[in-house]
């Protein structure tokens, strides 16, 4: 069998729709998991035992259950007890919850790495806890956690292919349809390989640029 990519031309728009859905779901889930990760990271450093325990439980739990099981639970399990959520929302929520567990690790590490003297300087100058957190703790933590957060995002893009199992026709879902319509799985999946690789490559490039921007002071020092 020869590789003949031209047979896919009529299906490109269809595949692009899927890629767009993948990007949409991942973008929303990224926001969701970073916010969740932030809250959980704060909760994990909380002085209240119950709050920090709950946060640790969440992280341990969701990191130790296969994503597909979590997803099936939300999509096929919850309706049994009367909770119906559409496939797209389920996908975004599931990715956010799973990603949040990893994101909280990245953010927590960034927070813990902050030099205590910097926080003391903020404290004695009278800055409120809120301002200290938003203007000092978070931006400094992000400087170091942007890379691990990037890995979380890349993993999320890869994991999002599993959303096709709950009828969500993102990139992989659309590809499956095209493969069965055209009987050319080889070509279809070659394209899929390339598209996922390109997608994650672009994301990691973006992360590198963002990392460089957040740490621009250190860059210039070296040069």
């Amino acid at each position: 069998m020869r590789l003949d990519l031209t047979i896919l031309i009529p299906h490109l728009g269809f595949l692009a729709e899927g890629a767009l859905l993948t990007l949409e779901a991942c973008a929303l889930a990224l926001i969701g998991s970073v916010i969740l990760g932030m809250l959980v990271a704060i909760a994990r450093t909380s002085s209240s035992k119950w709050i920090s325990r709950l946060a640790f439980l969440y992280v341990d739990l969701f990191r130790n259950i296969p994503f597909i099981v979590q997803l099936f639970f939300f999509y096929y399990g919850l309706p049994e007890i009367g909770i119906y959520i559409d496939a797209f929302t389920t996908g975004v929520v599931a990715l956010s919850i799973a990603g949040g567990a990893y994101a909280s690790d990245a953010i927590r590490a960034g927070i813990l790495a902050i030099d205590n003297g910097i926080l003391e300087a903020a404290e004695v100058s009278g800055l409120s806890k809120r301002v200290t957190f938003t203007r000092i703790v978070l931006p400094i933590a992000l400087r170091t956690s942007v890379r691990p957060l990037g890995s979380v995002l890349i993993n999320m893009i890869l994991t999002s292919s599993i959303l096709s199992t709950i009828t969500l026709n993102e990139l992989t879902g659309q590809a499956k349809i095209v493969a069965s319509d055209t009987f050319r799985p080889f070509e279809v999946y070659v394209v899929l390989l390339v598209v996922y690789a390109a997608l994650t490559y672009l994301v990691s490039l973006g992360i590198t640029l963002l990392h460089r921007r957040l740490n621009r002071d250190l860059q210039e020092q070296v040069s």
């Binding site: 003391e120 300087a121 957040l214």
Partner: peptide, 28 residues
């Protein structure tokens, strides 16, 4: 009423010199 200067400076690394100086006057 009191200002502290630290042995190890403790400047905010992600802010410029000017931003380090103006943060508290603006926020506090």
């Amino acid at each position: 009423r009191s200002g502290t200067v630290f042995q190890l400076f403790n400047l905010y690394p992600h802010m410029t010199a000017l931003q380090n100086i103006t943060l508290a006057p603006i926020e506090v």
